[in-house]
Design a binder for these strands. Structure first.
Length: 293
DNA sequence: CCGCGGGCCTGAGAGC
DNA sequence: TGCTCTCAGGCCCGCG
């Protein structure tokens, strides 16, 4: 579910509750997540202070006073809920337990900032992991990620280079986290419509020509940055599971140009096309066959 | 190395 | 009402 804008929205919600706060208690209601929680998960967290909460691609990374990093991933259906003391429906050790939120609160943090944080994930495609900060360069989940799409490193020259020789579709290339890290199905579809590029175009056709990046590649990079920035500002997209950490919905779904809009008119100015749905790599792609070339 | 398809899970919605 | 089928925002693995 959550792509970069949703994860960044979650990070911004968690940061004031976690940064400079200590884990007073940790409960793992179940550890059989996408990958199993380590046996010493609770012991390694308890008593530690969160020095900073960052994000890399779709991963949240909490730096701990112990020197460990707590890595958290939301999978397809994960969410975090922050509840301040006094806001919970039922009293108890955490003032906020399973019965308060549902049956999928797999991990609950009680923080010294006076909040309880619940990680909820029905499908259990998300998980958490601990590793020493000193080993972050070796972390397999992070090691082969491409650049952050909102960073300076991601530009048309870099994308052109990464696409050179690739026989796969542009859609698949942009979903490949080794090329650029953080995009998912929604924002790839949206960025391609904004830049009027067909998702079926062969990726290598975005490569540099005559020594300079092509205009369409420049436009694609600009569109990716713009759609991500717009979505973050809107608190992400709430289709099924995504919530901001205070429980509010994101509202970028109201601004989708093509995603889940099969049969509706293309929003491109002057375009009379109709949004079409196709399947690429087993996943839905929404695009306008008229203006996206 | 590269690209593709399957699998991991649960829940919502459509169709009968 | 209730069953069955399909699909969902991600990512890893194994195959050819």
């Amino acid at each position: 579910m959550p792509e970069l804008p949703e994860v960044e929205t979650v990070r911004r919600g968690l940061a004031p509750a976690m940064e400079d706060a200590r884990f007073e208690a940790v409960v793992a209601h179940r550890g059989d997540l996408r990958w199993p929680l380590p046996k010493d998960f609770v012991a390694r967290l308890k008593g530690q202070t969160v020095v900073g909460l960052g994000r890399r691609a779709k991963y949240l990374l909490a730096d701990l006073s112990s020197g460990d990093v707590l890595l958290m991933h939301l999978g397809m259906s994960g969410s975090f809920r922050v509840v301040r003391d006094g806001e919970a429906k039922t009293p108890g050790l955490f003032h906020y337990q399973r019965s308060d939120y549902g049956t999928h609160d797999h991990v609950v943090f009680r923080m010294s900032s006076g909040v309880t944080i619940a990680f909820n994930d029905p499908r259990r495609f998300g998980s958490m992991k601990l590793f020493p900060r000193s080993k972050i360069e070796d972390e397999p989940l992070l090691r082969s990620l491409g650049p952050e799409p909102l960073g300076n490193e991601f530009d048309a020259a870099m994308l052109a280079q990464a696409c050179a020789g690739k026989r796969t579709s542009v859609k698949a290339a942009l979903l490949d986290q080794r090329i650029v890290a953080g995009l998912g199905n929604i924002y790839v579809c949206e960025a391609l419509n904004r830049s009027r590029i067909s998702p079926r175009r062969v990726a290598s056709t975005l490569a540099t020509r005559a020594g300079a990046p092509q205009e369409r590649t420049v436009l694609l990079v600009d569109s990716i940055k713009a759609v991500l920035a717009d979505a973050i500002e809107a608190g992400g997209s709430s289709l099924r599971d995504h919530r901001q950490t205070n429980g509010d919905l994101g509202y970028f779904q109201h601004r989708f140009r093509v995603y889940d809009r099969e049969g509706k008119p293309c929003p491109t100015r002057g375009c009379s096309g109709t949004i079409k749905r196709i399947v690429q790599g087993g996943r839905s792609t929404f695009f306008c066959p008229v203006c996206q070339k």
